[in-house]
Structure formats: C-alpha cells, structure tokens
Nucleic acid binder design. Sequence first.
DNA 1: CCTCAAGTTGAGAGAGTCCTCAACTTAGCT
DNA 2: AGCTAAGTTGAGGACTCTCTCAACTTGAGG
Lengths: 196, 196
Amino acid sequence: MRKDAVQNRERLLAAARRLFADRGLDVPLEEIAREAGVSIGTLYNRFPARDDLVAAVFEDRMATVAGLAERALTAADAWEGFVGFLTGVCELQAADLGYNDLAVRGAPTGPGHALMRRLLERAQESGGLRSDVTLTDMAFVIWGVGATVRATHEVAPGAWRRHLALALDGLRAGAARPLPVPPMTTLQARAALEGC
Amino acid sequence: MRKDAVQNRERLLAAARRLFADRGLDVPLEEIAREAGVSIGTLYNRFPARDDLVAAVFEDRMATVAGLAERALTAADAWEGFVGFLTGVCELQAADLGYNDLAVRGAPTGPGHALMRRLLERAQESGGLRSDVTLTDMAFVIWGVGATVRATHEVAPGAWRRHLALALDGLRAGAARPLPVPPMTTLQARAALEGC
DNA sequence: CCTCAAGTTGAGAGAGTCCTCAACTTAGCT
DNA sequence: AGCTAAGTTGAGGACTCTCTCAACTTGAGG
C-alpha cells in the first residue's frame, strides 16, 4: 500500500473514532470523510461497507473485553470478578456511543462468549450469582444499560452506574425470586440482534 | 367537520394504530396514508405534524396508565401494587412498538407522574421497595424493558418478562446494596428525553 | 525524468422521506 | 339544481444519505 494511502486510512480511522464515539454508529459517512479531510470516494475505496470501517475502528475493543474477562476470572471473589467484568463493559459503552451501539447490537454474540460463560458459571458456583440466570440473560444488562447510556450521556453521564447497580442487585443470589418465562435460547438471542 | 372528513380521520387513525404497533413510531407517513387509502395531502391536512397523529393514536393509553396506577394504589399489598403497575405498563410496551417508543421517549414525564410518586412512596413505606430509589430511577426499568422489547419482540416475545422480573428483584428492599452516584434530578430525567 | 499502477476526486444517480400547494372534487345548505 | 366552503389530490421541491465511476493526480521504481 502506498504511504499516502496508509495516511489517509489512518485519518479516516481517527475521524471515525471521534465521530462514532460522540454520536454513535449511524453518523453519515460523508461527514467522516470530511472530518478526515478526504473525499467520500476515498472512504469507499478503503472501506467498501460501513461495517468494514466499524470493524476496523472497534477491533481493539474485542481484545479489551477479552482482557477484562480474563482478569475477572482470576479475581479472588468470583462475584466481584463478575461485577468487575460487567462494569468494565458498561464503562466502555458509556465512554463511546459507537461502542454502545455495537454492544447493544451484538450483545450475546460477543467475542468473549466462552469466557463469559465460565465467568458466569464461576460466579454461580461461588453462590454470589443467582443460579437461575443464563448467559442470554446478560443481554438484558447490556441492552438496558445501553438504553440508559443513550438517553443520559449528555445530561447525566453517570446515571448508568445506578442502573447497573440496581441490575446487579437483581442478579444476586440473595435476591432471587422464581423467574417467569424460560430464558432465551442462544438462537433466539442471536436472532434478536438481526432485528436491530 | 364534514362526514367524509371524519371518516378519513378515522381511517388514518386506524392505519396509524396498526403500523405504529407493528413497526414503531418512525413509520413513514406516506405509508400510513396509503394504508388508510387516502392521499398524503389529506394526512397532513388532518395532522399537520407527526406528533399530532401520535398524540391522537395514543390518547387512550394515558387513561389506561392512569387507571393502572389508581388500581395499583388500592391493592392490599403495596409492593404487589407497585409490581402490578410496572407490569401493566410493560405489557402495553410489549403489545405495541409505537407505545414502546413513546414510553421510552417520555418515561419520567408521564401523565401519572403524581400517581406514580404516591405508588412508589407507598411501596417504600410498606417495606417492599428499597428506600434509596426515586421516581427517576423508574426510567431505568422503562428504558431497559423498552430496549429488550425492541430487540426481542419478533423472536422471543415474552423475554421482557424475565428482564422485568430481574429488575424488580433488584428493586426489592431485601436486595438493597448502597447505590453509587445520586439519582437523576427531575430536570435531568426530563432532559434525557429530548435527546431521544 | 518518465511511466504507470495506485490512489484520489467530487459530481451525480438513486433511494427514501418530509412537506407544500394549485387544481380539482364533493358534501351539504338553500 | 346550483353554489360554496370544506376537503382531497398527487406531482414535485427540498433535504439527506448511500454508493459509483470516469477523469484526474501522484508516489515510487526503473
């Protein structure tokens, strides 16, 4: 790749990072090109589809989340580890509206799928996490906090922490009351994301 | 008003009710006009702004929610009343994507504002509801369940009940752990809605 | 310096939505 | 039946966003 092309790619990524973070994934591509000081044609040249740009921008987050999960697994207290992981993910959501959109749209399909399952089972075995929740129920936390982040990020930037705290209190073993309907199947959870 | 005009108004409302329910508030107005068998000009003639149509379609829901709140206030068990109210509102959300959008966008400004405050205080005095939550925290339930409804309505229509049950378990006095950040002020909660 | 593959450009086609308005139609009164 | 205010119509202007492509520019190897 020619060096001016590399530079333009970097500029596009930097612009996209900024705009996605401030306004979410639906920012017009023309605006990203303008912000990058590059024409719309160049943007399409580098990133034929919006998803290619999104994937490139948020590549690092996959590793970040995996790191969070691994650290959480080594926590002395399994429940604390579980809480730390969810808090970490929600902090990423709150820090970047683009990642918030991505997390909401990809909640249960995430990369740390296997890691999360172990995290959850470990927290259940330790007696901290109620035993009647499944991995697919974690989507409720992501979706819920995601909605709160969207609504409040400008006007009450820390409000999501309160939402998360309430949600976590509902996940504690001590709080458990029998749940109604069965959990979503993995297939259902996956399908739920297509619709948004 | 001429009787053909009345009829067209009814047709428009019926069409809007159907389409809003199925697809949410952002359905194109042209499609509503087509579904009603009426031209787009007539729609604009009757309802100059989208909000006028939305208000007319969901007028009845205001009364429904007020009724839910009043019934909840007379429940023998204050906590059960509180749960019944929230469940009722969420059922409305799940039954109608348009109302879901409306509830999410208008969560804390709702009509039963005063009624809801009494409902909440009553549930707290009875010892069922944790005492550190405020009215503005209810928005988390509406926003959260709203997001789950949106994501799952096609693929796992009952999933929101599980989300709500978990949220309610987090609101129980028994589950209470100290909450982080202070609650949103009413002003913040109101402002949060403008952004969406 | 020359060449040309690689890269950039931006006007414009296309799709979708909102909203208007001048021309037309009709309900309902006399 | 005739009149008129009330109502309807739908083409079209305005805006926004996506995506393409033929013409132009430039980096870098020879």
